[in-house]
Nucleic acid binder design. Structure first.
Length: 447
RNA sequence: GGGGUGGUAGCUCAACUGGUUAGAGCUUUGCACUGUCACUGCAAAGGUUGCGGGUUCGAGUCCCGUCCACCCCGCCA
C-alpha cells in the first residue's frame, strides 16, 4: 500500500491507510493505548485496545518514543480528539528503534526546559525534528526557491563560481588556505570576481547561490565561517539605485510567496506576522543616518560605518518614520568599501554602493562596480593590493565590459530576521563557526 | 582578537559567608488505569560538580592555569 502523509488523513476518513513516521508520544491507559505519530506534515493520534488486535496492542504498549514505525490502520471520526479523527491501528511494523532518553529535548510549544543551543547543534538531527525547526527548514527552501524564480523571470542566468580559487580574492578578510595538489589554494570568500566575469561574458545578468568561506574568528549571533551567499550581478545599469530597486522587488516577491505559503504557520509557530512591504524602501545617506542617531542620543564612534547598536537604532527610527522594516543606506566613504565599488564622480570620497538593513541587521552590501580598467587599477593601488594577485580579475575588463552592479545577501541572516530567530547558528542546517566544524566541537584540541 | 557572565544528574536549573549523605522539575525505568491528548497516581534509578593544579582540618563554593558555551564589542553577509 502507498504511504499517506498525515496532513492528507482528513480526506481519508473511513479508509484504510498506511502512514509512516515517528512515535511522538505514548499515552498508555492500561487496556487502551494512544500513540501520537508524527511525520513531516504533522501529527495524528492512533489508538489500539486490548480487546482488538492483541498482537498490535502489545507492540504499541512497548514502543519507545522517537522510534520509526510503519502503520496500517483505519482512519475514523473521533469526536474526543481535537482534530476530529484518529487512526485505529491494524498492523504495525517497527522500522527503527530509538535509544532513550534523548540527549536533548525536542522543542514543543509548551517546552520549558529547552536544551542549550550548542547541545542542540551537537545533536542537530534530533533537534531538527521539532515543528519549529522543520518549518524553518521549509521556509528556508521557499526563500531560495522564490529568489531563484524571480531572477530567472528577470532574464538572469545562474552561475556556479568556483569555490576553490588560486588567489586570495578581494578585501583583507582572512581566507582559508587549502592544499591543492602541490600548491596552495584558497576557499572563496565571495563569488564577486566570477560574477563580474559573467558580465564581461555577456550573460547580461547572473546570479550565484552557494557557500562562501570567511576565516574570521567572529563569535556573534550573525557570523559563520561558512555560509550561503545569494549573489547577483546585473549589466547595463545607470546607477546603483537600479540594483537597489531590483533587490527591493525581489524581496517583495519572496516575502509575498512566503506569506501565501507559510504565513499562517509562521504566525502560529513563531508568532511572527510576515509583512510584505509596499512601495519603495527608504533611502538614507550615512550622513543623514548619523544625524538621526545623534538626535536620539545614540553614540557613534565611527563616521563611516555603523555599530550593531546603531544598526538597530537606525532601523527602529526609519521604521517609525516610514513604516518600512527595510532601509537602504548609501554614501559610504569609498575608502571603507571594497576597491571595486565605483566612486561617485561628483564626490570621489563616496562610493556608489549601499547596504540594506532589515529589522536592525545588515543583510546586504551592494554597489555599482567600476568597469573601467584604469580606474579599477588605480583603486587597487590606493589600497596597496598587489597588482599581481588581481591580474586575472583585471583581464576580465580588457576586452570590453558593460557597466554593471550587484549585491550579496546573507541567506541565513535573511531567514533569521524573517522568523525572528536569535542567531544564524539556528537558521543554518549545520553551522560552521571558529570552534565548530559540524558536530566536531573543540577544533583546536584536534590540531 | 578584546571585555563580561557561566560550566553541577540524560535535559533545565538550585545549593546562603567554605562545613554532615550535592537537591528539585522534566525525562527515563517499573507497577496501576478502556478515551487519554503537556494523561494521571505510586515507586525507583540517575552525580569523577568541564579538565589540571593549588590553598584549607574541610572546596560545587576561594586562588592559578586551561578548554568550552553564552552576551557585548571588533570584522562582516
Amino acid at each position: 500500500m502507498e504511504r499517506t502523509y498525515i496532513s492528507e488523513l482528513k480526506t481519508n476518513i473511513g479508509k484504510t491507510v498506511r502512514v509512516r513516521g515517528r512515535v511522538d508520544t505514548i499515552r498508555d491507559q492500561g487496556k487502551i493505548v494512544f500513540m501520537v505519530l508524527r511525520d513531516i506534515s504533522g501529527k495524528v493520534q492512533t489508538v489500539s485496545w486490548s480487546g482488538g488486535n492483541i498482537e498490535v496492542f502489545n507492540i504499541v504498549k512497548a514502543l519507545i518514543p522517537e522510534s520509526v514505525v510503519d502503520i496500517t490502520g483505519l482512519v475514523k471520526e473521533a469526536k474526543q480528539v481535537a482534530s476530529g479523527y484518529e487512526i485505529e491501528i491494524q498492523e504495525i511494523k517497527i522500522d527503527s528503534v530509538s535509544k532513550t532518553p534523548l540527549p536533548i529535548v525536542i522543542e514543543q510549544p509548551y517546552s520549558k526546559n529547552i536544551s542549550n543551543l550548542d547541545k542542540r547543534l551537537d545533536y542537530r538531527w534530533v533537534d531538527l525534528r521539532s515543528q519549529r525547526n522543520s518549518l524553518m527548514m521549509m521556509v528556508g527552501t521557499e526563500i531560495l526557491n522564490r529568489f531563484r524564480e524571480y531572477f530567472i523571470d528577470n532574464h538572469f542566468v545562474e552561475i556556479q563560481g568556483p569555490r576553490i580559487i588560486s588567489a586570495a580574492s578581494e578585501s583583507g578578510a582572512s581566507v582559508f588556505e587549502v592544499k591543492y595538489f602541490d600548491r596552495k589554494a584558497y576557499l572563496a570568500q565571495s563569488p564577486q570576481f566570477h560574477k563580474q566575469m559573467g558580465i564581461a561574458a555577456d550573460l547580461d545578468r547572473v546570479f550565484n547561490i552557494g557557500p562562501v568561506f570567511r576565516a574570521e574568528k567572529s563569535f556573534t549571533t550573525r557570523h559563520l565561517t561558512e555560509y550561503t551567499s545569494l549573489d547577483i550581478e546585473m549589466g547595463y545599469i545607470d546607477s546603483f539605485k537600479d540594483v537597489c530597486r531590483f533587490e527591493q522587488e525581489a524581496i517583495k516577491y519572496v516575502l509575498k510567496g512566503i506569506k501565501e505559503k507559510y504565513g499562517d504557520a509562521i504566525k502560529t509557530v513563531f508568532g511572527v506576522e510576515v509583512k510584505v512591504p509596499e512601495g519603495d524602501f527608504p533611502y538614507i545617506s550615512v550622513k543623514e543616518a548619523k544625524e538621526k542617531l545623534s538626535k536620539e542620543g545614540i553614540p557613534s564612534k565611527d563616521t563611516g560605518d555603523f555599530s550593531p547598536e546603531e544598526e538597530r537604532a537606525i532601523s527602529d527610527i526609519m521604521e517609525k518614520e516610514t513604516g518600512c522594516e527595510f532601509v537602504f543606506i548609501h554614501d559610504y566613504p569609498h575608502k571603507r568599501r571594497a576597491f571595486y565599488h565605483m566612486k561617485d564622480s561628483n564626490n570621489p570620497e563616496f562610493a556608489l554602493g549601499f547596504d540594506l538593513f532589515w529589522k536592525g541587521l545588515e543583510i546586504t552590501t551592494g554597489a555599482q562596480r567600476e568597469h573601467r580598467l584604469e580606474h579599477l587599477i588605480e583603486s587597487a593601488k590606493e589600497r596597496a593590493i598587489p597588482e599581481e594577485s588581481l591580474k586575472e580579475y583585471f583581464e576580465y575588463f580588457e576586452y570590453g565590459c558593460p557597466p554593471h552592479g550587484g549585491f550579496a545577501l546573507g541567506t541565513e541572516r535573511f531567514l533569521m530576521k524573517l522568523l525572528d530567530f536569535g542567531s544564524v547558528l539556528e537558521t543554518t542546517y549545520l553551522p560552521n563557526t571558529p570552534n565548530r566544524l559540524g558536530k566536531l566541537i573543540n577544533v583546536k584540541k584536534t590540531k
